[in-house]
Each structure stands twice: as C-alpha cells, then as structure tokens.
C-alpha cells in the first residue's frame, strides 16, 4: 500500500452540499500532491458548540484514530470550522487550509481565466471563524482573480467580517434570530451574487435572499453568469443522500 503523507478531510457540510466537488478536490490533490488520502467523518464540532465537551472529546478521538491509522502527518481541510477544531485537537498533524494551499500548488488544469467573460460581480463573504487568517483571505482572492471574476468587498470583510448567522448552532436554537443575522449580512452587499468558502455560510447567504455559490462551484463548475441557475437550499434528506454519494465517490477515486 502507498504511504499516506497527508489526508484531505472535506467536512460534513461540503459533503452534504455537492459530492462532485469533493471528488474534484481529491482528484486535484492526487494530481498535484501524490500521497494524499481522505477521510469522511464528523469531527464532533456540533457537540462542542453545544457545550457537550465530554461527548466532543469522545467523538474527536474517533476521528483522530482514523487519521493515525493512515499515518498522515498533514491534514488538508476545506472548512474553516474544521480548520480550527483540528488545529486545536490534532497537535501531531499540521493542518492546512485548501485556500492557502492553492496559491502554492497552482490552480487545477484548465481553470485559469475561465470566467473572464462572465458578467458577474461576485461579493466575497469571509468566514468569521478564520477572521485572523490573512493567508486564507488572500488565497480566496487569489483564486477568484485567477478564475477571472469581478469581486465586491462588503463593508465588513476579512478580519472584520460578520457572521453569516450559522455559527454557534444558533439556527436550530433560535431560528428567528439567526434569520435576522443572515439578513443583515446579505444586506451589506450591493451585488446579488455571492461566493463563500464554507457550505454552511453559503446556505445562510441563500437564506438571506442572495444567490450564492461555494468557491469550489466556481473552480470546478461551469462559468457562472447572471443567466446561470444558482443552487438553492437542500432538504435534510438530500443532505444525507449527498453524504452517502460523497462516500461512494471518495471510495471510487481513491481505489
């Protein structure tokens, strides 16, 4: 068996959103960085957010043992919440964000300048959990620039970004309040079209009344224009179906 140097962990929300994107990322990493494995498993963050620390420790230990099983010494993540959780709880592994990695290893083949003709101006929503990670903010802007999209920065951006409304498990606890937070955030943008780099943020922006995509949609999907049909909100059932599909796709590309 080949040695697994690093492992890509797509996280729950991305795999519930669009399995194809996870598949494309793995293919891209395999191509650029041979020696990359992958794990689909929850890190337990939701329990932590609720204050269930004992449960969280137990859950995270489950994930950690999978990482250790592969012997990886680096974790690549595409979710900012995963980034924080894993940085704090996997001291033996180096945790890298896909968005800081891309400028280093280059865009996937054939994606550069592909959207130069797009008529869209896309508003950039930064995740609040990594508000102090300048390299991630820069990476995202680098990617958008490489693709060729015009962008808009809202008044609160980068280290000063505002929460999408999803954080802290507020949506199930206090949906009305969460909706207000979402509406206020989307209200900051002039453009109707937004890009996020977290699937949960994308959902919030959509609930806040905007047309929103994940940055991986821009990288691996079609060229988006004002004519494009933007993804809406999935049902819980669809999410679980997607997760199952993600698992299958991961097993396929890594076999």
């Amino acid at each position: 068996m080949a040695k697994t140097k690093r492992v890509f962990i797509p996280g729950c929300s991305l795999s519930s959103y669009r399995p194809e994107l996870v598949e494309e990322v793995i293919k891209y990493l395999k191509n650029k960085l041979p020696g990359t494995g992958a794990i689909l498993k929850c890190c337990g963050k939701p329990t932590k957010a609720l204050g269930q620390y004992d449960k969280f420790k137990e859950r995270y230990a489950g994930l950690q043992s999978e990482i250790d099983k592969l012997g990886a010494d680096e974790i690549i993540v595409a979710c900012q919440s995963c980034y924080l959780t894993m940085s704090a709880n996997s001291p033996e592994q180096k945790v890298t964000s896909l968005w800081e990695l891309m400028p280093e290893i280059g865009m996937p083949e054939g994606t550069a300048a592909k959207a130069e003709k797009s008529d869209l101006t896309i508003g950039v929503h930064d995740s609040c959990s990594t508000r102090d990670r300048e390299d991630i903010h820069n990476g995202i802007r680098w990617i958008l620039d490489q693709l060729g999209y015009n962008t808009e920065e809202p008044p609160h951006t980068k280290e000063n970004t505002r929460c999408c409304g999803f954080g802290g498990m507020v949506v199930p606890a206090n949906p009305d309040l969460a909706q207000k937070v979402m509406d206020r955030r989307t209200g900051e943008f002039e453009t109707e079209h937004l890009v996020t780099y977290c699937a949960a943020c994308r959902e919030s922006m959509t609930k806040g009344g905007k047309k929103a995509v994940h940055i991986l949609d821009l990288i691996f999907g079609p060229v988006w224009t004002s004519e494009s049909e933007f993804p809406g909100l999935g049902t819980p059932i669809e999410s679980w179906v997607n997760r199952y599909k993600t698992k299958k796709k991961m097993q396929k590309v890594l076999s």
Partner: peptide, 17 residues
C-alpha cells in the same frame, strides 16, 4: 449518523509522493 459506518469512510493514498 455522522459517525455511523453508513456515512463515513477512510481512504489511504493510492499513489506515492
């Protein structure tokens, strides 16, 4: 569910660096 076998997988690398 997020921890059940049905929705989890661990895949090693298939090619060496």
């Amino acid at each position: 569910l997020g921890f059940s076998k049905l929705f989890t997988t661990t895949r090693a690398a298939v090619d060496e660096e």
